[in-house]
Nucleic acid binder design. Sequence first.
RNA 1: CCAGAGGUGGCGGAGUGGCCAAUCGCAGCAGACUGUAAAUCUGCCGGGUUUUCCCUGCGGAGGUUCGAAUCCUCCCCUCUGGA
Length: 403
Amino acid sequence: MAFFKKKYQSKKSRARLGEINTAHGQVKTPAFVPVATKGTLKTLTPKQIKEIGVQLSFVNTYHLVVSPGVDVIEKAGGIHKMADFNWPLMSDSGGFQVFSLARQNFKSQITNIKKNLNNKNQDNQRRADIRGEESPLVKKISEDGVKFRSLYDGRLIEFTPEKSMEYQMKIGADLNMAFDECTYYPATYEYTEKAMERTHNWLVRCVNYKRAQAIGKKQGYSFFNKQYLYGIIQGGTYTDLRKKSAEFVASQPVDGVAIGGVSVGETKKEMRKQVGAVAGLLPDDRPVHLLGVGQFDDIIDLVKCGIDTFDCVEPTRLARMGILLSFSDSNKIDINKGIYKNNLEVVDKSCGCWVCQTFTKAYLHHLFKQKEILGYTLATYHNLSVMEKFMGHIREMIGKDLI
RNA sequence: CCAGAGGUGGCGGAGUGGCCAAUCGCAGCAGACUGUAAAUCUGCCGGGUUUUCCCUGCGGAGGUUCGAAUCCUCCCCUCUGGA
């Protein structure tokens, strides 16, 4: 069975219907990919995840290397088995942590700078310059790879393209991301270009590593053990770099293409612009993933650029903050608000998921106010149900050429 | 009735002569969150519509002092032992 199959091309845009086939099942695209960083989709049991209808979820190599460690995972038979995630999985390479962990340090520096400087432009200028400085959590970014400090026990962890691939193979997710460097926003052109080129070099190394591993293992289209590799497009907010990156990544023998380095602080408009810039360069015969994007309006708009899968922490994170996604009520309600204290209406009439059919706003409000564990579970269950329903609509609309 | 401890903003609880409209926590209110160090973070939180400004204010009433939540006197109330 082909790894990726385009089933329908909208007549109205680049939007398309497709299917991704993996050893752990099929994914109908466009699909939303909830994030289960540490091998757990926070607050949900595998049974609940299945029930919601999640097709594909996301795990993070960096976090799994830190804990529990890839060797235990491998011994356990892979993360699918260990976590009882009996559906397709995608693993991130650790590249995003180059951005997110370094930013912690960056943030505190920014705070200090803000205290000392009033001039905003100057402030932004400084932000760009700070990039790449030493930080407690990202020790060093070099051509060879990145040295991180473990969040868990402080030990030094080194990621190179080869190591990321090795770790991802041990983790065993079906879809793997090439090791990349996710750049900051704002970042200078020079830095962004350098990071992009580094990302390209790293992609070649990832491909070579997988090839070497595949020798003697005849696995059809995939390089190794039915795990598929996505190359990542970078280029920050510079359209010419984005295009260059897209062309390069698409030219590589990768199974899929991902767009990274977006929604890292730039405006929505800017983000759309960058994805749009690359839309015409995306491969027609391979799946396209957009990293880190998943708000309703983003998905509607970006599906039109030919994006097949979207991962995003937002629905699950917001759920834990008490923000319930909704098709009415201007997209979300904050169940913590006092106005829900005595509201005996169902959470979301238009939803119809188990949570909405069963529980009232007053009950959810109460659970959140009391910080009861069940509250987080119910909210997460609901938000992901909304996402699944939403993606279903999107697929339907593409099928009818409405998108 | 005797002895001891205590009464501070919605609650808990610091402060024990000026830097106190009063630390802090909780609750409340508002905001943020897009490849998860996030069940997290930020701001407000006596009143006056912003304020480096004014009012009220640490059980009550007096008093000492340039100045009191903080010291003194009396009163009211609570708690813990004893009768």
